[in-house]
């Protein structure tokens, strides 16, 4: 392998500078003692203290985490079933419609998803709040979860499942003891993706929520509309830190899993 030429090294440096400089400045200014974004007033954790006293924001964060856990679990369960249906069930009536419905949310504009679900909830006269947002998030994350699991199911040795069934295992037992242990890294990845999508969503939640269920992105959005403040920077820094810890931790776990699997 040749060494990278100076042009390519420059491309890498510029590309990653573009991707990371905004995030780095955001983190740096969360430790700024001055309220002014452009004036560096010395290092301070003042804004983190202020954040810890911000009840509404903390409530919203807790709500978003609960919502993310429930909707990601639902989306992963449904997405795994959908992936099984698409890879293991051959032809069934309405298969084209089914795969279309699974994949459509991936390209649906969020505003359309949000509006259509809200109209459904209004038509069905359900009280809007935690559960309507959860259902909405599970619905649009389902397709993403399905794709991740489907990729794993497609590249996997079917003879193991056949062997289990030849030995008398029911499909359910086969799934539980053979298939699921083999695809679990994909299932875990699907769950994390669905959780992130839920935690990240502003538009669909704004449409489908009701009084008393304000998610973290909704709080952040209204704060951002009012202007830049070091306190929002501090909130963002904590979120970025949490994501970095989870992503790095997950990839280390996955690496160890792969090593032990040989």
């Amino acid at each position: 392998m040749k060494r990278l030429g100076p042009g390519l090294i420059l491309a890498l440096m510029l590309g990653f500078a573009f991707l990371y400089l905004p995030i780095v400045t955001l983190i740096a200014y969360s430790f700024n003692a001055s309220r002014l974004v452009t004036v560096w007033g010395g290092f301070s954790t003042h804004w983190y203290g202020a954040l810890m006293a911000n009840e509404p924001l903390l409530d919203a964060a807790w709500l978003s985490i609960r919502l993310g856990v429930v909707s990601a679990t639902l989306a992963t369960a449904l997405g795994t079933l959908a992936a099984l249906a698409l890879t293991r069930h051959g032809r069934f009536p309405g298969r084209t419609l089914f795969s279309g419905m699974v994949l459509a949310p991936l390209v649906m504009p969020e505003v359309v998803t949000g509006l259509s679900l809200l109209l459904l909830f209004v038509a069905a006269d359900v009280e809007r709040g935690f559960w309507t947002v959860t259902v909405a998030h599970a619905t649009f994350s389902l397709g993403f979860a399905c794709i991740v699991v489907q990729a794993r199911l497609a590249g996997f040795d079917r003879s193991l499942e056949e062997a289990a069934q030849d030995l008398g295992a029911t499909p359910f037992v086969t799934f539980w003891t053979v298939t699921l242990p083999l695809i679990w890294p994909a299932v875990a990845a699907a769950w994390m993706l669905a959780f992130t999508l839920s935690l990240d969503d502003l538009v669909v939640a704004s449409f489908t929520t009701g009084p008393g269920a304000t998610t973290l992105p909704m709080r952040l959005y209204s704060a951002v509309k009012l202007g830049v403040s070091p306190e929002i920077n501090a909130a963002c820094t904590i979120m970025i830190g949490a994501v970095a810890v989870v992503v790095v931790g997950a990839s280390l776990l996955l690496k160890r899993e792969q090593l032990s699997a040989g």
């Binding site: 991707l19 905004p22 951002v224 830049v228 979120m239 994501v243």
Partner: peptide, 30 residues
């Protein structure tokens, strides 16, 4: 991983970061 990592951080945060950079007397001007 370095390309994917920003994708995992909140969309809203990434847009917010640019407000601080682009606004008048923001970081770009400074």
């Amino acid at each position: 991983v370095l390309v994917i990592l920003p994708f995992w951080t909140s969309f809203l945060i990434r847009v917010y970061a640019w407000i601080g950079i682009l606004r008048p007397d923001g970081l770009l001007d400074a």
